[in-house]
Design a protein around this nucleic acid. Structure first.
Ligand SMILES: [Zn+2]
Length: 474
DNA sequence: TCTGCCGGGTG
DNA sequence: CACCCGGCAGA
């Protein structure tokens, strides 16, 4: 007995962040935090990251805390003043807030995302006024540098590739920070020991994402939609060039959860940090403040992985990612993000851990998936140049077939992604022994159980079709 | 009873 | 094909 499903074909409002969502949802956020505030231009002193700010976050966002100015509030940048840090000038995404306003002291709508964090060379001066001027100057420069026009033309900051829609499912997973509510959203945390500020010395590169601001200039004419998503604060996982995958990182204190979908991270934040049970549809969007986009370079990642002990596809013991213990790095989901990568600590993960695999057989099942597929031409959420053999694909969950991951290399610049035709294939992964014997049911938890009926859209395609699960194989 | 998914149906 | 689901069988 399944609960009435949402009408098929109508993608759930993932990006329920509407225009309203861009409004300040938390009036006075930070104004009371630690009682420390720094007015605009107050860069004379460089208070270390204090208050709720996390050192690692600050570092991630702006560099060494000691070079910070302003106040970090919770996990976001206090909006009351411009963030002029370590040569970086934080600007709200153009679409969200007017640059001039921001500089003038008008708080951005939300914590500045890394993606909007554009480095701008700035000469620090002792006087406040001078700093203010700098801020203004930087702002101008930044705004220029982030203009769609420029971005679209080889600034390398943003690609013109279709910043398509939200990738529905899939995720990388991790461990800690989790809660019983992460259903389906696998992730992993960056921090190993909360007490140790994780420094950005990841084995794999994670770069501050320059969110695809260009949109308006995309040549495939998709940006309209994309722009909408973007403007409405709905981060869109998209495939960049070959190996850059956009992930979403939870910025909550001591949580470094990284998920591959905005919805996932939102859910995580709502449930774990905000303690809200309400459906995303009823969310006030506050969670948007606590996560940011990060670009993950597949190449680096895989390079790092290559050093790991290869795991036999038949291994029954789930391999563990040593690197996971370290810091920020992410592994993109192989396909339309329908792949979990887990650490042993993952709570919501099925019994099997740490595996990378996809649901190739059933791709782009839902409308959402379709759009995802669109984003990830070639049917693979990421440019993995692999054609998983039907049989070999029978990789047991928990095994990481490194051989299937191709290394490419981080790209600061997003290149346009050629549109490819989505290849949908349904190859029931080899009908094993055709002995007519119904193969014994695996006892592994499948999508249905892992995500639950209410999250059916998170199931792998096969499960949705009531076929043999392609995600959590036995 | 729940779950996984085969086998078959539909468009 | 992509997608859906009745219904069986194992847990
Ligand atoms: Zn499944």
């Amino acid at each position: 007995m399944e609960p009435p499903r949402p009408s098929r074909g109508v993608p759930r409002a993932e990006g329920r962040v509407t225009a309203a969502g861009l409004q300040v949802k938390r009036a006075g956020i930070g104004s009371t935090i630690k009682g420390r505030t720094f007015g605009p231009g107050n860069t004379t002193t460089l208070p270390p990251c204090v208050g709720e700010a996390r050192a690692e976050e600050c570092f991630l966002r702006h560099g060494p805390p000691t070079q910070h100015t302003g106040t970090h509030v919770m996990n976001g940048w206090k909006k009351e003043e411009p963030c002029l840090v370590n040569g970086h000038h934080c600007l709200p995404r153009p679409a969200e807030v007017e640059t001039a306003q921001h500089v003038a002291g008008t708080p951005p709508e939300r914590p500045l995302l890394q993606s909007a964090h554009i480095p701008v060379p700035i000469q620090r001066k002792p006087s406040e006024k001078a700093d203010l001027d700098e801020v203004i100057a930087a702002t101008v420069l930044t705004s220029l540098s982030t203009s769609p026009l420029l971005l679209g033309q080889g600034t390398g900051i943003c690609t013109t590739e279709p910043c398509s829609k939200v990738s529905k499912e899939g995720a990388l997973v991790s461990s800690s920070c989790s809660s019983s509510t992460n259903s389906g959203d696998w992730n992993w945390d960056f921090q190993g020991d909360p007490s140790i500020p994780s420094t950005p010395s990841p084995p794999l590169s994670i770069e501050v994402s320059k969110t695809c601001l260009s949109s308006a200039q995309s040549d495939d004419g998709i940006e309209d939609t994309d722009t909408v998503h973007f403007l409405f604060g709905d981060p869109i996982p998209r495939k960049r060039k070959n190996s850059v995958k956009v992930m979403f990182k939870c910025l909550w204190k001591n949580c470094g959860k990284v998920l591959s979908t905005s919805s996932g991270i939102q859910k995580h934040i709502r449930a774990v940090h905000l303690g809200r049970r309400a459906e995303p549809d009823h969310s006030d969007g506050e969670e948007d403040f606590y996560y940011t986009e990060i670009d993950v370079n597949m190449d680096s990642l895989t390079d790092g992985l290559s050093s790991l002990t290869p795991v036999s596809p038949t291994t029954s013991t789930p391999p563990v990612f040593p690197i996971l213990e370290q810091s920020a790095w992410t592994l993109p989901a192989p396909t339309n993000s329908e792949l979990p990568l887990v650490t042993p600590l993952s709570l919501s993960a099925p019994t099997s851990l740490c595996h990378v695999h996809t649901d190739h057989a059933y791709q782009a099942a839902s409308p959402i998936s379709v759009s995802t597929a669109k984003l990830f031409p070639g049917n693979a959420g990421f440019s993995f140049s692999w054609q998983p053999p039907p049989v070999l694909f029978k990789t047991p969950p928990g095994s990481l077939n490194l051989a299937q991951i191709r290394t490419v290399g981080v790209n600061e610049k997003r290149l346009q992604m050629p549109h490819q035709t989505v290849v949908k294939t349904y190859s029931p992964a080899v009908s094993a022994p055709k002995t007519g014997m119904r193969k014994p049911r695996g006892d592994a938890k499948k999508c249905r159980k892992v995500y639950g009926m209410e999250n059916r859209e998170m199931w792998c395609t096969a499960c949705r079709w009531k076929k043999a699960c392609q995600r959590f194989m036995d």
